[in-house]
Design a protein around this nucleic acid. Structure first.
Length: 450
RNA sequence: GGAAGAGUGGCAGAGUGGUUGAAUGCACUGGUCUUGAAAACCAGCAAGGAUGCAAGUCCUUCCAGGGUUCGAAUCCCUGCUCUUCCGCCA
């Protein structure tokens, strides 16, 4: 969300920034809605002030035993006017909020301009892809060769974009997650959190998944709710029943749960930054990805991810962004996987984001780098949506915090990367990276069953 | 799932229809005193918004939504959360 005062002052700057994402000018509509809302609000407040004053007078007269009939009638006559203005004001406010909640974040100045992912800019590179003396095998062939990766059975129970892992691969997935978490907590100073996987609508709004990306989310529903909804429609009862809502959303990333920890809070600025990490499954509809990455484990409806989230004071988020990206890179270095870091261009940057670094790991079978982590500075965008603020000692005013999130790392994709980069064509096995051995009982290599 | 109770400012906790945005205590901030600190004393201390050059004025908010009323923290309805007990369960 945005600072309306700032938009009023320099609308052209906001439009120019949004234009970098390919948006047409947004401020004329925003300012018009804002104008309407404020005019109604002022009018309403004048009436309310009149009502309050006269009501107080009635109280005074009555306490002195006088007759207040005349003035009571006067106030009563204001009632309808106030009710209708209240309605209009609420509608105007709603319209403004709807408009604002669908507009993406402002981009940082140093985000390169460009229409799509082909215009992202490489920042640095680490490691060299190994020269292969045979055709590279992709992770599906490797996994099925090991008899430890099973898409068919997953499809039977859940449809496409699900998978079962067995034995060594299942254990390696777990080992990766443990290794990531332990490195974050012991070396990077993050606090491990175990948080809800099902969250309410307000929470999904806070981090920006709703309302715009509704179609990408999985939603649960409860029969209780349906019963009540039917009752509601039949009875034509008040809207009050609508607030009874046990429907929950499956998190698409633990960024949602971790960032919303500070929703509605006022934090002592001295206690910032807060740095969280969590290992959770993530659930995504992948609605817009039909036909994309249909083979293998790259794009699943359910996958594991270790997430990092930082909450900082407003002047500290840029350095925190670099730090966070470094934490993710550190994991790939320890795994000895070749990767590069890129900065996303304007057209490829996400809705909530001011600036994003992607880490891309080398995937031999595709002879290219593929995304394995995305580290973003959301600035005050999410904080405004979830009303998360901080206050410096001795200061009266509160400020919106800045929030950042990054994968550290996507576990499924990390498994893919390890399988392909550590593949041994001699026997179809997969060497265990040194850092994972302690997590796999000292195992040196995953070898085919039997 | 059933029963009972409760949700008020950073915390604790008064307040059951009328100058209550809210007593009091703690915490916090400034001051007096002190070599310094503590104690004591004095003063200040919610958030969001509208309007205005500003000083200020006004509006909203006592879990949330709806209702009654000239007027709601206070009365009614619905929901949510928490506590205790029972049931069920990993």
């Amino acid at each position: 969300m945005f600072d309306l005062r700032a938009i009023r002052q320099t609308p052209e700057e906001f439009d120019a920034n949004w234009a970098r994402r390919g948006l047409s000018p947004q401020t004329p509509e925003i300012l018009a809605l804002d104008e309407t809302k404020r005019a109604l609000q002022t009018e309403l407040q004048e009436l309310l002030a009149e009502r309050n004053e006269k009501s107080k007078e009635i109280g005074k007269i009555k306490s002195q035993g006088g007759d207040a009939e005349a003035i009571m009638a006067e106030v009563a006559s204001l009632k309808d006017k106030i009710a209708s203005l209240e309605e209009k004001q609420k509608e105007a406010e709603e319209a403004l909020k709807t408009k604002l909640s669908g507009i993406p974040n402002q981009l940082a100045e140093d985000v390169p301009d460009g229409p799509d992912e082909d215009h992202n800019v490489e920042v640095r590179r680490h490691g060299e892809p190994k020269a292969l003396n045979s055709e590279p095998k992709d992770h599906v062939d490797i996994g099925e060769g090991l008899d430890m990766m099973d898409f068919a059975t997953a499809a039977k129970m859940s449809g496409s974009r699900f998978v079962l892992l067995h034995s060594g691969l299942a254990r390696m997935e777990r080992a990766l997650a443990q290794f990531f978490l332990d490195t974050h907590t012991s070396e990077h100073g993050l606090t491990e959190v175990s948080a809800p996987l099902l969250v309410n609508t307000k929470t999904m709004f806070g981090t920006g998944q709703l309302p715009k990306f509704r179609d990408d989310q999985f939603k649960t529903f409860s029969t209780d709710y349906l019963v009540d909804k039917e009752l509601l429609e039949e009875s034509g009862l008040s809207k009050g029943l609508m607030t009874y809502n046990r429907d929950l959303w499956l998190i698409p990333t633990s960024e949602v749960s971790l960032t919303n920890i500070v929703a509605e809070e006022i934090i002592d600025e001295e206690t910032l930054p807060r740095r969280y990490t969590a290992f959770t499954p993530c659930f995504r509809k992948e609605a817009g990805s039909a036909g994309k990455d249909t083979r293998g484990m790259i794009r699943m409806h359910q996958f594991y991810k270790v997430e990092m989230v930082s909450v900082t004071a407003p002047d500290k988020s840029e350095e925190e962004h670099e730090r966070m990206t470094g934490c993710a890179e550190n994991l790939l270095k320890k795994l000895e996987l070749p990767f590069r870091t890129i900065v996303l261009c304007s057209g490829d940057s996400g809705f909530t984001v001011r600036k994003t670094y992607d880490l891309e790991v080398w995937i031999p079978s595709q002879e290219t780098y593929r995304e394995i982590s995305s580290c973003s500075n959301c600035w005050d965008f999410q904080a405004r949506r979830m009303n998360a603020r901080c206050r410096a000692k001795g200061e009266k005013d509160t400020k919106f915090v800045h929030t950042l999130n990054g994968s550290g790392l996507a576990v499924g994709r990390a498994l893919v990367a390890v399988m392909e980069n550590y593949y041994d064509p001699a026997d179809g096995g997969v060497f265990v990276p040194d850092v994972l051995k302690p997590y796999m009982g000292g195992m040196e290599k995953i070898t085919p069953k039997g």
